[in-house]
Design a protein around this nucleic acid. Structure first.
Length: 417
DNA sequence: TCTGGGGTCCTAGGACCC
DNA sequence: TCTGGGGTCCTAGGACCC
């Protein structure tokens, strides 16, 4: 059996833990630049605020209905996630952390009362972190996902834990679950399936496997097996990332090359730090620019370039140089840009790297980067940085930012009695 | 005025090899 | 006129996830 555990309205719940006056009130969390809604408490959902809603269109609603509005506070959410995951990991020898607010647990070989076990986990996480979770338990990962949805959405359910452990329960679940809500069925596939009369997960499992393979590739086929109770999607053990990206929407449209170059260098530097943290070297850097897609009348230009490095490296200095080289090839001064990004890809392990006979990363950078990372970790992010980086010119809009209650001693909560 | 960010996997088609 | 067959690797783009 597998469990899929996820945190309810995770970001909104994190804000509530440290601000109990928000209990029972609508809460929303906004994306970077306070752009759009990326998390909503149940009360906010009931007000009809949709996922992804542009914040400026809902300001009146926020005001009128007393909605607690927060700028995204990722250091806080990341730390709360680590706490929740750590507690859950004690319930199984194998945990797959699937996203910031979700994980799978492998219960293979355990013969216990799964429902009781789930309720225990739930109480434990709630008591130690204040975060409410929902739990689905079933013979495959895809069915565990479905069970989780039942725990959360099935009319009348309130205990947050559902177990699919009999054939009747499996069939009942599949007959209830809409096809677009099946894990792994996206918009495109849902439309394809609807067109041939598939409305429920149950209809999907009754399609012929050859049809599924032909129109939905092997991915669809293993999903179908999973829903039929045959495990086909293995647990993923923690591994190094295969790509690392930093992309940002700017606070305004920008045309100045110097300014964009500064952003590209800063993004590259952030990527490089993550790259060194997972002890990888990188062979390719992708740089992209985007014009403002909401200005439909204006000519759009969304170039990207893949720069192949002559050697593998994790040096911020070298990566930044190649990224800027890429930028110069795609930048055109007649456009204003709203978004840009840097993606590192094609990694190899730093400790297994075989240097080339001719051209290699500058060996002096290794120590330099080590010291830079150590100082930045000890004191403050970006105390040591490249000369071209200039944070003063790029202030992200964060008008509703909560404190870093759990990761910054200056922000620790003070309780007055 | 104001509209997010970071990942993974699969496939078709081209380049290249013998 | 007629012009093979079977592989691998790489990449761009699409689909999906949260």
């Amino acid at each position: 059996m597998y469990a899929l555990i996820d945190c309810n309205n995770f970001y909104a719940s994190c804000e509530r833990v440290f601000n109990p006056s928000l209990m029972g009130k609508p809460v929303v969390v906004l994306s970077n630049n306070d752009g759009c809604v990326i998390a909503r408490s149940n009360e906010a959902k009931k007000l009809g605020i949709p996922m992804g809603a542009p914040a400026y269109q809902y300001e009146a609603v926020f005001e009128r209905r007393g909605v607690g509005v927060f700028s995204a506070n990722f250091p806080l959410y990341g730390d709360m996630s680590r706490r929740v995951m750590s507690i859950l990991s004690s319930y199984s020898p194998q945990q797959e952390i699937y996203s910031i607010d979700e994980c799978f647990l492998d219960f293979s070989g355990m013969s216990i009362d799964f429902r009781e076990y789930g309720l225990k986990m739930r109480a434990h996480v709630e008591k130690w972190t204040g975060i409410p979770i929902s739990i689905g338990i079933a013979p495959t990962k895809a069915l565990a996902k479905a069970a989780n949805r039942i725990a959360k959405k099935f009319p009348g359910r309130t205990d947050g834990c559902h177990v699919i452990d009999t054939e009747e329960k499996r069939i009942k679940a599949l007959k209830w679950l809409d096809i677009e809500d099946v894990w792994g069925i996206g918009r495109r596939n849902a439309a394809k399936l609807r067109a041939i009369g598939v409305r429920k997960a149950w209809d999907f499992v009754n399609l012929s496997p050859s049809w599924v393979q032909k129109y939905m590739t092997v991915t669809g086929l293993s999903l179908q097996k999973e829903l039929n109770g045959i495990p086909s999607i293995p647990m993923e053990l923690p591994e190094k990332r295969q790509s690392i990206a930093i992309t940002r929407t700017f606070d305004a449209d920008k045309g100045d090359v110097e300014e964009i170059r500064e952003r590209i260098v800063t993004f590259t530097s952030m990527c490089a730090e993550k790259l060194r943290f997972q002890q990888s070297l990188c062979r390719k850097v992708m740089v992209f620019l985007e014009t403002n897609r909401f200005k439909g009348k204006e000519m759009q230009y969304n170039p990207s370039i893949l720069v192949r490095l002559p050697f593998a490296t994790d040096s911020t200095l070298e990566l930044a140089k190649f990224a800027v080289g890429g930028l110069k090839q795609i930048y055109k001064e007649q456009f204003l840009y709203k978004r840009a990004g840097v993606i590192l890809m094609d990694f190899e392990d730093a400790d297994r790297y075989q240097p080339s006979l001719f051209l290699n990363s500058n060996p002096k950078h290794k120590l330099l980067m080590e010291k830079m990372d150590a100082i930045n970790r000890k004191y403050h992010k970006d105390v040591v940085r490249l000369g071209v980086q200039d944070f003063t010119r790029h202030q992200m809009r964060q008008e509703h930012l909560s404190r870093q209650y759990t990761t910054n001693i200056r922000d620790i909560l003070v309780v007055e009695i």
